[in-house]
Amino acid sequence: MNNKFIRILIIINGILIPIFIGFLLVSFIISEIKSMNETVWADGKYLQQVNEFEVKYDSPKNLPNSENYYVAIRKIYADQYDLYTGDDLLNQIPSNTSNIIFLDKDFNVKGKILQNEGSIVNMYIPKMETAEEIMVGHISYFIADSDTNSDGRIDQNDQHYVYLSDLNGENLKQITDRKVRQYKWINDNSQILLTFKNGEADTNLEFGVYDVKTGEIKQTKNLNTAE
């Protein structure tokens, strides 16, 4: 009886042990595949998580309408392309800019535009093209300072708003809490034309004119493009 019971136990163990080992092997393989999928190749090295990033500093550039300089800080996540831009006539910073350092004419650091890292997808200082245009003493930006899509980081995929600062980066202020699709300096650089974003369809075309001197926005009549 005992011998028969022992033989049964041996048979059961012979079946269960390979199954258990097979389960461990499959779990290990799945874990390795998942780890490989999360690994990203960037600048000659592997980054294990897509939320890992590296920081790069742009070379100093002269601020238009000023004798001062600025340096863009770029925060590049592992799953993002490092597409360098910054020579665009309508955008004076490269992609993946997270902050901007301002320097005086002797390259002494005066400060940063943001106290904490964020995302800046646009920085623009209009240059004088005619004698009638006003010498602009402000910088305009598209800035995101919070993780609006809850993906654990602040980047170009978050909601950006229009800001203004002085030429030295001081007195930064958000000019409207409304979502803006695009903006443009107008009327000899004395005002900014805002194209508001009204939902995904944007069938209602709505503009606002921001006066730099008064700090006020004049709303315009809506145009329903679907009608």
Rank of each mutant, 00 (worst) to 15 (best):
N122I: 02
I139G: 04
D43H: 06
G44K: 00
N51A: 00
T203Q: 10
G208F: 12
I186R: 04
N51H: 13
K61R: 14
G152S: 06
D58S: 14
D43I: 01
G118Q: 11
Y81M: 03
A144Q: 08
E38H: 13
I12H: 04
E38A: 13
Y124Q: 07
N204A: 12
L90G: 08
I17A: 10
I30W: 05
I30N: 14
K75G: 06
L103D: 12
Q174V: 03
T148D: 03
T176A: 07
N168V: 00
Q159T: 13
Y69F: 15
D211A: 02
S27K: 10
A42G: 01
A201P: 01
Q92S: 08
S140V: 10
E67H: 12
N13W: 07
L114W: 02
V212G: 04
Q219F: 03
I101L: 15
P18W: 09
K221N: 15
I100W: 05
S31C: 01
E52A: 06
Y81F: 07
T225V: 12
L193D: 01
N204G: 05
H138P: 01
N62Q: 13
Y46R: 12
V212F: 10
I15R: 03
I113P: 02
E129A: 03
I12R: 01
Q174F: 00
I134M: 14
E38T: 04
K127W: 02
Q219R: 11
L114V: 04
Y69L: 12
E129I: 07
F23D: 04
Q92N: 09
R178Q: 14
Q174M: 15
S35E: 11
G111P: 07
P60H: 05
Q156R: 11
